[in-house]
């Protein structure tokens, strides 16, 4: 059976890492993982601390473009005789493609976020140019949502013929119903400007006057005192946090495909979110959650849900049904396996 290398920039935390963990756990293929930079074991994403799948680290420095990465990657690919390289996230695409071409094996590139992330982030100009060339030339490009796909194709970064869309999935058994409803408004997101945590805080301040007893929690952000919301810092397992939730509020400015929203919906929690392309793919406005464009509308959507327990229950039920019928991780993994066999 063919051996496949999953190349990723780092395996500490993030949405793509969570999806990779799902894929590795559910797949029957002979998989190995390579990370561009090394991480100490205790900092690894929890799944990868215990997995038996081999993990290779290509560099000891903190730089995604350290000079030793490419030779050691090519050497690794030669020695382990992989037949396919699967590159996750922007940073790994360029070196993954060069290595794949050097030994003439196919390469799948998978950008996980909107183009805006590349434009706003700390990417250097030559880096963007290289990523663009590499994406254009990769054998297949796997997008996590239709919005991301449309964004790249419309901007001329990806070819339609080589693009494939497999939406992110969620483990609906692990993220199951908790049985009782929580009492908090919750969001999950690391401390980055695109996650819009300031907006979350201002919504919390707006709602504080009417709903003084409702706690507001942020998991994954920084830990701090004196904020209007409860900052829980980085959490290993988001399930206990989601169990406390009555409403999940997502205020991200852009989002490739939000795992947190998927997980919240899978646990039967109604979602209030900014109307982004990818979020409106997973949240049906008015049926499984409420979507809004600005802070005022988000606040009034929260208010509407806080006042209506029946609506919350109904939306939560519809949301879980939809996750089970359309976003099961097992089904998404099957599609990824079909993509392998398309190339091998």
């Amino acid at each position: 059976m063919a051996r496949i290398l999953h190349l990723i920039s780092q395996i500490e935390q993030g949405g793509a890492q969570r999806q990779l963990a799902y894929v590795v756990a559910n797949q029957k293929w002979d998989l190995e993982i390579a990370s561009l930079i090394a991480s100490p074991k205790e900092k690894l994403f929890p799944f990868f601390q215990h997995t038996e799948v081999p993990i290779h680290f290509l560099s000891n420095s903190n730089d995604f473009y350290a000079p030793e990465i490419l030779p050691s990657l090519i050497k690794l690919v030669r020695d382990r005789e992989y037949s396919l390289i699967f590159c996750w996230l922007f940073q790994s695409i360029v070196q993954g493609l060069v290595a794949a071409r050097a030994v003439q094996i196919p390469c799948i590139a998978s950008p996980r976020n909107m183009l805006e992330h590349l434009k706003r982030g700390s990417f250097r100009k030559w880096e963007k140019l290289l990523i663009r060339r590499a994406l254009w030339n990769a054998d297949r490009i796997l997008f996590p949502s239709y919005s991301v796909a449309m964004d790249f194709i419309d901007s001329g970064w990806a070819q339609t013929a080589r693009s494939r869309i497999i939406q992110n999935g969620v483990d609906t058994d692990y993220f199951g119903l908790s049985g009782k409803e929580g009492n908090a408004i919750v969001t999950i997101g690391r401390d980055a400007p695109e996650k819009g945590l300031e907006d979350f805080e201002s919504i919390a301040t707006n709602l504080r006057t009417d709903f003084a007893t409702v706690p507001f929690c942020v998991a994954g952000g920084k830990k701090a005192q004196g904020s209007p919301v409860e900052l829980l810092g980085h959490v290993e397992d988001v399930r206990p946090v989601l169990e406390r939730a009555m409403i999940f509020l997502n205020t991200s400015i852009f989002e490739g495909m939000s795992n947190a929203v998927l997980e919240a919906q899978s646990m039967g929690i109604p979602v209030v979110a900014k109307r982004l392309g990818s979020t409106s793919e997973i949240v049906e406005d008015g049926i499984t959650g409420l979507l809004a464009d600005n802070i005022q509308d988000l606040t009034s959507a929260c208010r509407k849900l806080l006042n209506d327990a029946d609506l919350r229950k109904e939306m939560g039920r519809r949301a879980r049904e939809r996750m089970i019928s359309r976003f099961q991780i097992a089904a998404q993994t099957k599609k990824i396996e079909a993509l392998y066999s398309e190339l091998l």
Partner: peptide, 23 residues
């Protein structure tokens, strides 16, 4: 050849066209 491949090669391109999403 490597340089050439980087810019032109498309593995299984016929299949790529057959299975592409309709735009």
């Amino acid at each position: 050849q490597l340089y050439w491949n980087f810019f032109t090669r498309d593995i299984a391109s016929k299949q790529a066209i057959a299975l592409q999403p309709l735009s």
